[in-house]
Amino acid sequence: MTIGKLKLTALVAVAAAFGATEAMATTWNVSVWGKRRAFTEHIHKLGDLVAEKTNGEFTFNISYGGLSNEKENLDGISIGAFEMAQFCAGYHPDKNPTLTVLELPFLGVNTLEEEVAVSNAVYGHPATQKDLARWNARLLMTSPMPQYNVAGVGKAPEKLEDYQGMRIRATGGIGEAFRTIGATPTSVTSAEAYNAMESGVVDSVAFAQHAHFSFRTIDLAKWWTTNLNPGTVNCPVVVNIDAYEALSDAERQALDESIDEAIAYYIENYGEVFKKWEAALNEKGVQRVTYTDDQIAVFEEQAAGAIRKQWLEEMTAQGLPAEELLQTVKDALKESRGGS
């Protein structure tokens, strides 16, 4: 063989080796929305950890609205349009009925750690996994959010009666809770909330603090409820089952073993949001509305019982183990508090 042919053979071998290395790299497209914020920090942290553990061979390409909108992320997962996505159960309860147990009002969840505990328990239930598998989706981790409260314009609702006729952006069980005290809930997306409040389509918006920042409703707010705490929404991160199963053992291990650390980072980061929120209320002169224990008890009595009963009936009629799912939440909450 001539020197020229030897050089050519060597170049081909190098190119082949380089090509093989490139082929082994895995990039997952991740569909989220809005902008980077506390709500998505665990996804970024997870991506950093996975890349680190695989020496850059497994990475995330996180897209804010470039792949899909939030109400269609589960559909995108189902057809493999992207490998990972975040969505909220209340956007399409008919598509994920088992998850709606986590959006029932007044479940008694008080902290982000408790929210993680109850979410993980429900995500691990066979009925929930079967439910999401219809969309070729595997539940990866939750996006724990604090109890929602309301920011609004106009007269502050200092009594429950003041919610009569109020148009409020609130989804899922939270929206139904407000309906029981005379408000009219609407499920405009988070991205539409500012324009809806500014134009008068809604008078108020129920969000967690980070979302009031991210979607700028704090810039319009004249009042804020400090302790209404009717519930929260549940927003899982899911992955396409086929994509998950196609990972190498090392990649799958890196992903699975990084979840707890990503969630811990999320919770730590959210603590800073609480501090910023109180400072923003002071700076903007937003009126704080704090309810008495008796007022909260009346709201809970009106909302929790009726909505829970209706939910149990509807889910059972669909053939779902509704009582079992609700008990799963109660048991997980008790266990997270050191009960037995």
Rank of each mutant, 00 (worst) to 15 (best):
S68L: 00
N69A: 03
N69C: 01
N69W: 11
N69R: 06
E70L: 05
K71A: 14
K71P: 01
K71F: 11
K71R: 15
E72H: 13
E72A: 14
E72Q: 15
N73Y: 00
N73H: 14
N73P: 04
N73Q: 04
L74R: 00
L74K: 01
D75C: 00
D75Q: 09
D75Y: 06
I77C: 06
I79T: 15
G80V: 15
A81T: 09
A81N: 12
A81Y: 07
A81F: 05
F82E: 12
A85Q: 01
A85T: 01
Q86L: 11
Q86V: 09
Q86R: 11
F87T: 09
C88M: 01
A89V: 05
G90E: 05
Y91Q: 12
H92N: 12
H92V: 02
H92E: 06
H92Q: 10
D94M: 00
D94Y: 01
D94C: 00
K95Q: 13
N96M: 08
P97Q: 09
P97G: 04
T98L: 01
T98W: 01
T98A: 07
T100G: 02
E103T: 14
E103R: 08
L104G: 05
L104F: 03
P105R: 08
P105H: 09
P105V: 05
P105M: 08
L107D: 03
L107Q: 12
G108C: 10
G108Y: 09
V109Y: 03
V109A: 02
V109C: 05
V109D: 03
V109T: 07
N110E: 14
T111D: 05
T111M: 05
T111L: 06
L112C: 08
L112N: 08
E113S: 11
E114R: 06
E114N: 07
E115G: 08
E115N: 14
E115V: 09
V116T: 04
V116A: 00
A117T: 11
A117L: 11
S119C: 10
N120Y: 07
A121C: 08
V122Q: 06
Y123E: 07
G124V: 13
H125Q: 10
H125N: 13
H125F: 12
H125P: 04
P126I: 09
P126S: 07
P126D: 10
P126R: 07
A127P: 13
A127L: 08
A127N: 13
A127W: 09
T128C: 07
T128E: 04
Q129S: 10
Q129D: 10
K130G: 03
L132N: 02
L132Y: 02
A133K: 15
A133G: 12
A133L: 15
A133V: 11
R134F: 01
W135S: 04
N136H: 14
N136Y: 13
N136P: 10
R138F: 14
R138A: 13
L139F: 06
L140T: 14
M141H: 03
M141Q: 08
T142D: 15
T142W: 00
T142A: 09
P144N: 11
M145A: 12
P146E: 14
Q147D: 12
Y148Q: 06
Y148D: 03
Y148F: 12
N149C: 10
A151M: 15
